[in-house]
Design a binder for these strands. Structure first.
Length: 473
RNA sequence: AGCGGGGUAGAGCAGCCUGGAGUGCUCGCAAGGCUCAUAACCUUGAGGUCGUGUGGUUCAAAUCCCACCCCCGCUACCA
């Protein structure tokens, strides 16, 4: 079996409902996966949920639900999110799966046997209010700011991973270009070069939830050691990953800790880490406490998958960007309905009346395909979409100038119809169900870049239903 | 504090690396055109001291250098 192009998303905590940030990452991953597909490649897309975290156990306890039942329920919501947004994953991994747990323990043991996990003392300030260690600089006047309590100094046995050993190797690996974009790469490199790299504590005590430490059953495995390994246990033979897609908040874990674990355990390293920015809602950070969350499942139910997908994919991948329901509506109305939907609608209507005559498509040379491909290569999805929609504009101008409603010129209509076919192919990764509708209406089935130059066979085209409805504000 | 990113028309951006008239994009606003189409589409126009410095380099600076102001991010076991 040949290895497929392997894309991952981060796996999500299931202690709450998904927000638009989760949706953004999954849609981005799906769009990149589908783009690879129209390039003719075989793709494997992995996503899933991170279920062994103590936070999940905490929230379950607060709600009075048995932990396993709680994570089962919430994991389903993340699967529902994918389904409703047409995120076509090939594997949905849950870190509570037996296979994953076994792999985790095997790797933990392997690294331990190699001598790169060792027993030591974990020392630090422990706040009994938080039930967690807190760092010295988080203290306010020597007290935990949240509980206004003086923390205890605790020293306890722990297992450590020999992360510091890999400093040089990590720098070399990252300098070869693992992290995208460059600014995130520089952030990590400067920290690696300028700060001390400490060993990583990979065990936790006093927990009743998580994967058992195979060396010492009094401990659980640190949840990040466990979570990162989902990429291997869920790979179905496709490791190493070609692209890991993660948010900027977990860059360190994926840039430093993850490659180090892999080197130590004797695995190949992933090719690219794509670090995306966050979405702000109305200029504010997404947060439950702010009460400004939009439920992406509700959005999809209300407006359909494609307007949600499109409006999110128009956000900048690398920078933080603003998102809101108003932005969704604006992009739906102005770009999807007015430009694309209306073009298809007016042309289908004209063809129904006057018919088609095959000819060379003179518009094709105005399509900046190379530029679109380059943007996709660089993960600049928003810019690729701009370029595709620039071609939609060119089509609308052409209709305007050629006035086929007066001339009844079947050749002009053919050129536009063929251009619409090309647009549908290019947009399939982003708004797949719309593209497929256009395919049905215009009589073509293949969504591949290699089909672009193959002319449309004229068929019986009818006006049909509107692709996008306008949303009233 | 350290490191990084940003400050360009009413809003959001691109342009900066590799200097050449403030060029461009998405929207908003104004006027006109068209009537095939989802009151859609097309054309034109108004609107900018390109954060500040009457700073440096240059024939020429949004672009390179310096200083300052403002915003934002990252700072490891907390996703």
């Amino acid at each position: 079996m040949t290895k497929k192009f392997f894309i991952t998303t981060a796996i999500d905590y299931v202690n709450g409902r998904p927000h638009v940030g989760h949706a953004f990452e999954k849609i981005l991953a799906d769009a990149l996966a589908r783009w690879k597909k129209i390039e003719g490649k075989e793709v494997f897309l992995l996503t899933g949920t991170d279920e062994n975290a103590q936070k999940n156990a905490q929230v379950a306890k607060e709600k009075g639900v048995p932990i396993q039942k709680f994570v089962d329920q919430n994991s389903k919501i993340f699967i529902e999110l994918c389904k409703i947004l047409d995120v076509n994953f090939d594997r949905f991994i849950r870190t509570t799966e037996a296979e994953h747990k076994k792999l985790c323990q095997d790797i933990f043991k392997k690294v331990y046997d190699k001598g790169e996990i060792y027993k030591g003392k974990y020392e630090g300030y422990y706040c009994t209010g938080c039930e967690a260690f807190i760092t010295e600089k988080d203290l306010v006047e020597g007290k935990c700011p949240e509980h206004n309590k003086e923390p205890e100094w605790i020293s306890e046995d722990s297992y450590f991973f020999d992360l510091s050993k890999y400093k040089r190797e990590l720098i070399d690996f990252i300098e070869k270009g693992y992290i995208v974009p460059e600014t995130r790469r520089n952030e990590i490199l400067s920290r690696l070069k300028n700060e001390e790299l400490k060993d990583l504590c990979v065990s936790r005590s006093n927990l009743d939830w998580g994967i058992d430490n195979p060396i010492d059953p009094k401990f659980k495995i640190y949840v990040w050691f466990d979570a990162l390994l989902n990429y291997v246990s869920g790979a179905n033979g496709n490791w190493p990953a070609d692209v890991h897609i993660v948010g900027k908040g977990i860059n360190w874990f994926h840039s430093v800790i993850w490659p180090a674990i892999l080197i130590s355990a004797g695995y190949k390293l992933p090719k690219t880490l794509l670090v995306h920015g966050y979405l702000n809602l109305g200029g504010k950070k997404i947060g439950k406490s702010l009460g400004n969350t939009i439920d992406p499942i509700d959005l999809a139910k209300k407006y359909g998958a494609d307007p949600v997908r499109y409006s999110l994919l128009k956000c900048s991948v690398f920078e933080d960007s603003d998102y809101s329901e108003d932005i969704l509506i604006e992009r739906n109305n102005n770009e999807l309905a007015n430009k694309l939907g209306n073009l298809v609608s007016r042309i289908a209507s004209l063809i129904e009346k006057y018919g088609l005559e095959k000819t060379e498509n003179s518009l094709l040379k105005k399509l900046k395909l190379k530029s679109i491909e380059k943007h996709m290569q660089n993960f600049e999805v928003d810019k690729a979409l701009n370029e595709i929609f620039a071609f939609v504009d060119i089509c609308n101008e052409y209709v305007q100038n050629k006035k086929p409603w007066e001339t009844h010129d079947k050749k002009v209509l053919y050129e536009i119809a063929d251009s619409i076919r090309i647009i549908a192919i290019l947009l399939w990764p982003f708004i797949p169900s719309t593209s497929e509708k256009i395919g049905k209406q215009f009589g073509f089935k293949k969504f591949l870049l290699s089909e672009i130059e193959k002319p449309l066979s004229p068929s019986n085209i009818k006006k049909g239903e509107l692709l996008f409805k306008k949303i009233e504000l």
